[in-house]
């Protein structure tokens, strides 16, 4: 097989990242993360300015780390969506400019699909039920007939949004998952919070409102503990039903919230009950990164996917269950 070097550019939300991969794996992955001020959420335009200001440094470092020149890159992949418009446009403009100037093929990548593909590459999960949990996604998925099918998702806010919005109410800066996990470990006092599952979908907005309200008259550690236990139990219940229904023997967890050890423990217990193996994406690659775009771009390129520069638009709302998965990852993995 001819070795193909793919540059991936990620810019859907707070992270601007570039990565170089080839069939042998990840050669570099460099990130610069926009930090909102404490108590505030991501401001799309400010995040985009951050990305633009840091783009050259990140790209140059990614190329240097991979010991490759931009002229030796074979294909350029970018996050087409879903994401924040101003942020997506920064990555797309860079990708289009490099593709035109250096005459390289351009590959559009769905950011959510890319989380799943990188997770499968890194863990070697083969045919998993997948749990995608981040600030932008909260979905239970399985691959069937060339598309990721949704077996459960949030009806309102995502798990990442729940943790971030609660954390900001408590005065922390996003992302807040790690500090909430740390505080939760200091308590075992459960404060009753709304537990809402509808069908196989979860609803977190009522839980968020109740947790914010409880914060005013209870210890922060107790509410962090109660919030995690409630939110994770809801999700674990939905995952267990999906495991039972699909009879999958693998569960893959990807996305920024995959780094949470308590959630991993609960999912591990469910997997044991259903004779399934748990695969959690390594923490380093759980959040948004260029490697997910580069790797998925490489898979797509080998499947013959590329687009003209004039067609390389961005789509802010691009559901992953509308993407045809026509590439064969096994040919690259073995």
């Amino acid at each position: 097989m001819i070795i193909v070097f793919c540059l991936g550019i990620e810019s859907t939300a707070h992270t601007f990242s570039c990565s170089v991969v080839n069939e042998g794996g990840i050669l570099s992955d460099v990130r610069s993360v926009y930090k909102a001020s404490e108590g505030k959420g991501i401001h799309p335009r400010e995040a985009a300015i951050h990305h633009a200001d840091n783009s050259k440094k990140v790209l140059d470092t990614a190329l240097n780390d991979a010991r490759i020149s931009i002229k030796d890159i074979d294909v350029i992949a970018y996050s087409k969506g879903p994401g924040l418009g101003p942020c997506l446009r920064v990555g797309a403009v860079i990708a289009r400019a490099l593709a035109v100037y250096y005459n390289k093929p351009l590959v559009p990548v769905n950011h959510a699909v890319a989380h799943l593909e990188l997770g499968m590459m890194l863990t070697r999960a083969n045919d998993p039920l997948a749990l995608l949990i981040s600030g932008g996604h909260c979905m239970i998925l399985a691959l069937s007939n060339n598309r990721w099918r949704v077996f459960g998702e949030t009806l309102d806010i995502t798990l990442g949004q729940l943790l971030d919005q609660f954390g900001r109410e408590a005065g922390f800066a996003s992302p807040c998952g790690a500090i909430i996990e740390e505080l939760a470990e200091r308590s075992h006092n459960y404060y009753t919070l709304p537990y809402s599952i509808k069908g196989n979908d979860v609803s977190y907005s009522g839980l968020l409102t109740a947790a914010k309200k409880a914060l005013k008259s209870n210890r922060l550690e107790d509410i962090c503990y109660s919030l995690q236990e409630t939110a994770f139990s809801m999700l674990t219940e939905a995952v267990e039903r999906a495991l039972a229904f699909t009879e999958k023997r693998e569960l893959l967890v990807v996305g920024g919230v995959a780094a949470n050890k308590r959630l991993a423990y609960l999912l591990e217990q469910v997997c044991k009950l259903h004779d399934a193996k748990l695969f959690v994406v390594p923490t380093k690659f759980a959040g948004d990164c260029g490697a997910q775009i580069a790797w998925t771009g490489l898979l797509e390129y080998h499947a013959g996917i590329s687009i003209k520069v004039e067609d390389a638009t961005v789509i802010q709302s691009w559901r992953l269950d509308t993407v045809d998965i026509i590439w064969n990852r096994q040919t690259l993995l073995h």
Binding site: R89, A92, V93, R96, A97, V100, Y101, V309, E310, D311, A312, T313, V314
Partner: peptide, 16 residues
């Protein structure tokens, strides 16, 4: 011209 052409093409897709 090469830079003008690159910029024009890089920006055009968002001009919708």
């Amino acid at each position: 011209y090469d830079l003008s052409n690159t910029i024009t093409k890089a920006l055009a897709a968002d001009n919708i």
